[in-house]
Each structure stands twice: as structure tokens, then as C-alpha cells.
Amino acid sequence: MFRRSLLGAAALASLTTLVAPVTAQAQAWKNFPDKPIKLVIAFPAGGPTDITMRSLADNAAKVLGHPVIIENKPGAGGTLPAQALQTAQPDGYTIAQIPLGVFRLGYTTKINWDPIKDISYVINVTGYAFGVVVPTNSPFKTWADFVAYAKANPGKLTYGSTGTLTSPHLTTEIIAQQAGIELQHVPYKGSADLMLAVVSGQLMAAVDSTGFAPQVEAGKLRVLNTWGEKRLPKFPDAPTLKELGYDIVQNSPFGIGAPRGTPPEVVKRLHDAFKKAMEEPSYVATLAKYDMLPDYKSTADYTKFAQDTVAREKAIIEKLGLAKPQ
């Protein structure tokens, strides 16, 4: 009996040793966050993404009780924040914007991580309103003029985007393929540099989100088309791609991800805070300045969206002949 008592005591002590850290960890997650959170975004300061995400972060900070600090990490087609998650601690204190380009990364370059398995998808928040713009002194008054010049001058019509293999770049290449034209692509790191290049005449055209609106309203740029389901109220004279005969709608949804292995309790806390932040009138108003709309997807729905998009992007990359050599 004495031996059985000793064994029982030892087993109980062992169980207590195992349970204590779990309980402490659960308590720690219950108190999350207890310090500032870093949100890494894929584009430079001052552009539509930066401005709208700062509004969202400010709202989320009020819910979380601690600051959400923006870190801009532009370049590499918007995929640097997702790559940063691969070396971050899975504790919820480093999160990142996940642009659509992340889902095609594995097909275009060699990476040692998986965009599905190695990111915890938290919440989808919005998407962009895109269009093609040219300087107001351009001879291209309509999209038909643009296409006619490109057909007569293969490879000579230059256009810029916010990066190689971004949604604006790839969608333009799909449009060009369908139109039977060849264009010359020039990548930039963000909207500010891109707009400067097209306004100054360094480029013949630019493809971007409607961060170009101030330049259009100032009479410096003209919109040839937009890429949504319907015409944008801000640019009622600009036809959609569908109106021009292309069966294309592109709004490039994006959301927020965390490192793989982030505890579900932390993911839920982040999801709930950013969902509430999305519903604040101040965020909706900031989005509206750039013709963007809230586009909520829950953690489960956003994860499913990521899985479906990876499969879809593979077909696009292969169609354009941009897949990396095996």
C-alpha cells in the first residue's frame, strides 16, 4: 500500500507538472495582448493601402487596448510581409497584410515555405478598385486608341504597376493577351512613385488602384477603364473591362495573417478586434476615398479563400508562361 501511495503521489506530481504550464499558457492567451502589436503591410507609406490600413489599425488598437503599429515593407510584389511571418514568433504580436500575390509566389520563385500551411489566416478586410490611366495630353482618348497603338507598335507601349507579379501586372497581361497586344511592363514599389512617373511622361500608362484619383481630379490623368463589376461613381465615363468585352473582374482581396502555430485563442482575439475595427464608420469612410469597400471573410472563410486562390493562380501563371522552371 505504501508503494502504491508513492506511485500515486508521483503520478499526481507529474500530472501537476504537465498541467501547470498549460494553465499558465491559457491564462497568458486570455490576457492577450499585453503590449503593442506590429502590423506589417506590403506597400509604402502614403499610398491607399497604407492610409486605409492605418485607419483600421487605429480602430483595432482601441478594441485591443494596445497600439497596433504599422511597419511598411514594400517590394517583391507585395510578398515581403508574408515572408516576415516565417521568422516571427507565433504569439500574435507580429501580423501581416496578405496581398493576392502571396498565393502565386510558390509558382514564380523558389521559397522554402508554403503560403497555405505556413500562415494562420485571421480575417479578410477589403480589396482594391483598379483602373488604367494615361496622361491627359496622351493621344489615347479611349481604350480603343490604346489597343490600336499597341497593335501597330508591338512592345513599345510602356505601362507601370506597383510591382512584378502583382494583380495589376498579371491582370494587364491577361487583358493584353485577350486583346492580342504586346506591352512593356515597368514595375514600381508603390503608388506614389508610379503616379509621378506617369504624370511626368516617363510612362505612357499606369495600372493601379484608385490612388490615382487626385491626379485625375487635378486634370493630370485620364481613366481609360476600371476593373470592377460596375462603373465607379467617381469615374462614371470610364467603362469596365466587362463593358469592353473582357470577362474580367479584379479587386484583389487582401486580409491579415499571423505566423503558423499562432494559438487559436489569439487568432480569435485578433479576428474579433479587426472585425469590429472594420465596422467603424471612420474606416468605411477612409476606404471610400479610394473606392474600396469592406470585404469581410471570417478566419475559416479566409483560409478556404486562400486555398482556392492558390489553385486558381496556378492556372493564371501557367497561362501567361511565368511559372518558374522545375
Rank of each mutant, 00 (worst) to 15 (best):
L85F: 06
L85C: 12
G92W: 07
I95N: 10
A96F: 02
A96R: 05
Q97S: 01
Q97F: 02
G101Q: 10
G101F: 07
V102M: 06
V102R: 05
V102Y: 09
L105D: 13
L105M: 12
T108N: 09
T108C: 08
T109G: 08
K110H: 14
N112D: 15
D118K: 07
I119D: 05
V122M: 03
V122N: 01
N124T: 06
T126D: 01
G127N: 00
A129H: 03
A129P: 00
A129Q: 05
G131S: 00
V133A: 12
T136W: 08
N137R: 12
P139F: 13
F140W: 13
T142Q: 00
W143V: 00
W143F: 12
A144F: 00
V147G: 00
N153H: 15
P154T: 11
G155T: 06
K156P: 08
S161F: 06
S161G: 15
T162S: 09
T164Q: 15
L165K: 11
T166G: 06
S167N: 12
P168V: 01
L170V: 13
L170A: 12
L170E: 15
T171W: 07
Q177N: 10
I181V: 11
E182S: 12
L183S: 06
H185T: 04
H185A: 07
P187F: 10
Y188D: 08
G190H: 11
S191P: 01
A192E: 11
A192N: 09
A197E: 11
A197V: 11
A197W: 12
V198C: 06
V198W: 07
G201F: 11
G201L: 07
L203Y: 10
A205F: 03
